[in-house]
Amino acid sequence: MTLKGSETNLIWQNIDPRLKIVWVTIFSFYLASVNDLKVLLASLIFGLIFSRLSDFSFKEIIQKLKPINFFILFFWIILPFTTPGPQLHLKWFNISQTGLELCLVLTVKANSLMLFFIAFILSLPTSTLAYALQKLKVSPKLVYLFLFAYRYLFLLKEEKEKLMRSLKIKGFTPKTNLFTYKIYAYLLGLLILRAYEKGDRAHKALLLRGFNGTFYSLYVYKLTAKDFYCSLVFFLVLILFIWMM
């Protein structure tokens, strides 16, 4: 049984999810510890290739990279002006060279890590990911936490929007005063209560649908020769990174 997708993506999609998780962990630990710009640029390129192999379009990939780059933007605003070290003299102000380099390294590193994550993890269906984590002997509690956070964060957001709407209808305008803080405290309290209730109902729903603590994957994966070859490719990429240093 295979997932949907075009022919070229089939190989990538049929890689054993456990293998993907293991490799992405290795890559992320390695890339997080490297500060060499050459290696990071190479990893960025490989990240792009891998994420193109998964079923995401360029537009989707860019969309997913937006939030992290927005976050990094703040480093670009602050670090070049505050880091000590050799300075580049522009007409009116000085820019720190080390700060600039640091920002560049940070940006490339964050983006390539994200690309690896998109390619290896986001391309998996949720149930498969839960199943694979379980097979890797990750604590069941963590697996549930991950899976339900993924689904219920959205529902909680919806719940919050409902409450905010009802506040607006009643003519509430937030100000900086005690009354506003009090209302927000109530809001948070209500949200926690509703989350609890939702959790209770979800628990009931799980019981009714025969859930007994283990997840099963809808798609079958077996460790075969293709997994070995893919691992070999990943290993060579890793060796390449190490050699480039």
Binding site: T126, S127, Y150, R151, K204, A205, L206
Partner: peptide, 8 residues
Amino acid sequence: DDQIIFPT
């Protein structure tokens, strides 16, 4: 929404 557990 209470019943549906998976995202797809």
